[in-house]
Design a protein around this nucleic acid. Sequence first.
RNA 1: GUGACCGUAGCUCAGUCAGGCUAGAGCGCCGCGUUGUGGUCGCGGAGGUCGCGGGUUCGAACCCCGUCGGUCACCCCA
Length: 421
Amino acid sequence: MAVPEAVRGAPDWLPPGARAFDLVERTFLEHARLAGYERVRVPVLEHTELFARGVGASTDVVQKEMYTFVDQGGRSLTLRPEGTAGVVRAALQAGVPRSGGLPVKYAYAGEFFRHERPQAGRQRQFTQVGVEALGSDDPVLDAEVVLVGWEALRAAGVDDLVLRLNNLGDREDRAEYHAVLNAYLDRFDDLPPDVAGRRHLNPLRAFDSKAPGMRAIMADAPLLGDHIGPEAARHHAAVVELLRDQGLPLTHDPRLVRGLDYYTRTTFEYQVGALGAQNAVGGGGRYDGLAEELGWPERFPGVGWALGVDRTVLALRAAGAAAPTDARVAVYVVVADRGLVADAFAVATQLRRAGVATDLAFDGRSVRAQFKAADRSGASHAVVVGPDEAARGAVTVRDLRSGAQREIARDDAATALAAGS
RNA sequence: GUGACCGUAGCUCAGUCAGGCUAGAGCGCCGCGUUGUGGUCGCGGAGGUCGCGGGUUCGAACCCCGUCGGUCACCCCA
């Protein structure tokens, strides 16, 4: 009978690869925490409507990439394809905009789902860490968010990192610009299908098209930058200045649009050179209109990013970074005589209770085999439980690096090893 | 969703082009070299539905079709 296989695009992470994964995720969360972003947990399942309204009906994510199903109560539910909509929804539901203490700063980590063709760095189930700062317009917050993401990626070990930044303006700016851009596009009657199909929902995406001839058409197209209102322009200038002050090497990218409709003003993306086609390890931006889009009666601005854990691990690998080599346990208990298995088990328990990560051999293997296992476990010390020692109420502690060993009283073993020797 | 390439031991791969003996290698794994001592070395051993299904053939890992999976690119984005 064939063994069941994982669902396509749903990756398994087993040791040792899982160590790098775990380390990256912890590094991201820790950097968020250092800036005051507190962990929240929101559902993987949401009503489909949340993403349709929040992420935007024109986006590829909503149009063709969502895992959507009807549950037994006849409701249309979706496995979250991104994190912002759910976090904002949770904040609105809890009345955060009216409860004071703004901005609130949230961090999250978890699994996301998009039905795309898998390739390097792109899985159907993937892991992101994200932050969202809600309830403030302050450009300092944009700069903080961008900087925290940058430093988190650097701390995780990503080197050739590029920060691309753009200003999408306010929603009114974009409405005006959409009209101008569409008027321009009207002058061409042979637009490629991808552009023709979505230009009225979001003509900005025309800049993304790589269809033949489109590049030439867009070269003369009116630019969003010329239709940004004074406030959004001032806001963006402030963000740029704050980031420059902190020494961030940023690249202005007027073509950076990003495929989620909720972005306003600041958008940015972190890119890695060594990663091939899927080179964005993270991205985000400001989404001042999202809350209203979701039906909240007042303006409730926000800014945030998401960093891809899987993709960051790949980037580190591609750059030749060594995998973390943490020892699985600190101590390995060896039984010299099968009759003493219960004693060895007791010693292991004693060590674990003292906070010393301990493993022991199973299946009654030879002492030689047990030492090989001890070696492989990465333990710094082996504790030998044998008849000679047992007669004296002692165990032998062997330093696996130097080979030096000594006998100590069994009751002192936990204390001695907990102290690091 | 589209295209190209790929799928042989746990891993990395040879063998496929010219179909034909028991399908190989390196690494890893297990055991032994000690009567209680690992990392080196030596000896021995286990392990393969050649992704899966069908077809062609006297005969298929090898040729053909399908399918599943992988990789890369498009697309999109983390």
